[in-house]
């Protein structure tokens, strides 16, 4: 049945996503073991962002959502960036 085909197709996508997430976890732990100096933090946050995007896009179906919802999420992330960024005009200089 068409419905079943769709369902197993989605299952495949979810499992693939999960494997990628596990692999990225292994990667980030390995990278943290190496001494990358100040790039270590940056790498960790970048890998975390890739993982978060995978969860958002596939587990949370953002990939299949309307442009409106994507725009709203981007707006929220932009707001967060603005808040943290502007605070660093103070603390980044003062500390």
């Amino acid at each position: 049945m068409n419905n079943n085909a769709k369902s197993s197709g989605r299952t495949a996508i979810y499992i693939a996503t999960w494997i990628c997430l596990l692999a990225l976890t292994a990667l980030t732990v390995t990278v943290a073991g190496m001494n990358l100096g100040k790039y270590g933090a940056l790498t960790s946050v970048l890998i975390a962002s890739v993982k978060a995007s995978l969860i958002l896009l596939f587990f949370m179906h953002l990939k299949y959502e309307t442009l409106l919802l994507k725009a709203m999420l981007l707006g929220t992330i932009a707001t967060i960036a603005v808040i943290i960024g502007l605070t660093f005009f103070d603390v980044g200089i003062r500390y």
Partner: peptide, 22 residues
């Protein structure tokens, strides 16, 4: 499910931030 995944997303950041970034 959306809520559960979001809690997961937050942990995805908490993990490196507390355990990995040295």
């Amino acid at each position: 499910g959306l809520y559960w995944h979001l809690v997961d997303v937050v942990w995805v950041y908490l993990f490196p931030v507390f355990y990995l970034i040295r």
